[in-house]
Every structure is written in structure tokens, then in C-alpha cells.
């Protein structure tokens, strides 16, 4: 399963809800306002990341917000092509609203 989150963890509980239901082998992709969770300063919001779940962030959305230089360790930045690869690699997609 590829989980997609687009809300800032400082504004909504969406990311926390997603991480609470992600399972080993799943991937989580942060897009739009959710990219703030991928920065070193906000990385505490990812403390709940379950074992075996890989974390990605959409770099165009990170760059747009001036956060490209602040990517926290352990998170992989992907471009739109990488986004497509993630969708193709996982059997299902769940968008968390």
C-alpha cells in the first residue's frame, strides 16, 4: 500500500492517523503541505513511523516551500517520475484526506 498524505502535521492529525495504520512493506509519500513533516525541525512528527514502512517526500513541493535543504535523514525525496514509480510498485494507494 502507498499512503499519500497532503496535510501539515502541525495543522491536522492526518499524518498521525496514516502512520497508525501503515504496516510493514507499505510506503508513505508526503506531498503538498505534508512535506513540512519531512524537515529536520519537524521530524518528531515521524517518531510514530512503524518498522518496515518507507518514507518519501515529493521534492517539487519541498522545493516550492524553500525546505529542500532541510530534509531529515531517512526520508527519500522523489520527483514526479518517482511518484509514479511508487504508485506502480505498490498494489494499492490510499489517500488520507
Amino acid at each position: 500500500m502507498l499512503h499519500i498524505v497532503n496535510k501539515s502535521p502541525h495543522e491536522r492529525s492526518t499524518l498521525a492517523a496514516c502512520l497508525a495504520h501503515a504496516r510493514a512493506g507499505h510506503a508513505v509519500l508526503l506531498i503538498e503541505d505534508a512535506v513540512v513533516a519531512a524537515t529536520r525541525g519537524s521530524a518528531a512528527t515521524l517518531a510514530a513511523l512503524p518498522a518496515g514502512v518507507s518514507l518519501y517526500v515529493l521534492s517539487p513541493d519541498l522545493q516550492a516551500r524553500g525546505l529542500a535543504g532541510q530534509l531529515a535523514e531517512g526520508i527519500t525525496a522523489v520527483d514526479y517520475r518517482g511518484f509514479v514509480d511508487l504508485v506502480a510498485a505498490q498494489p494499492r494507494v490510499q489517500s488520507w484526506l
Binding site: 497508525a20 495504520h21 501503515a22 504496516r23 494499492r92 490510499q94 484526506l97
Partner: peptide
């Protein structure tokens, strides 16, 4: 429980959130 719910979500063909 949350863990059962997560497992059930994982068994679906399509998951749509609202």
C-alpha cells in the same frame, strides 16, 4: 482495535478515504 483495523485495510482491493 487499531491493529485489526490496519490489517483489514491492508486486505482491501480499494481503499477510499473521506
Amino acid at each position: 482495535g487499531r491493529e485489526e483495523m490496519a490489517a483489514l485495510m491492508d486486505e482491501q482491493d480499494v481503499v477510499i478515504g473521506f
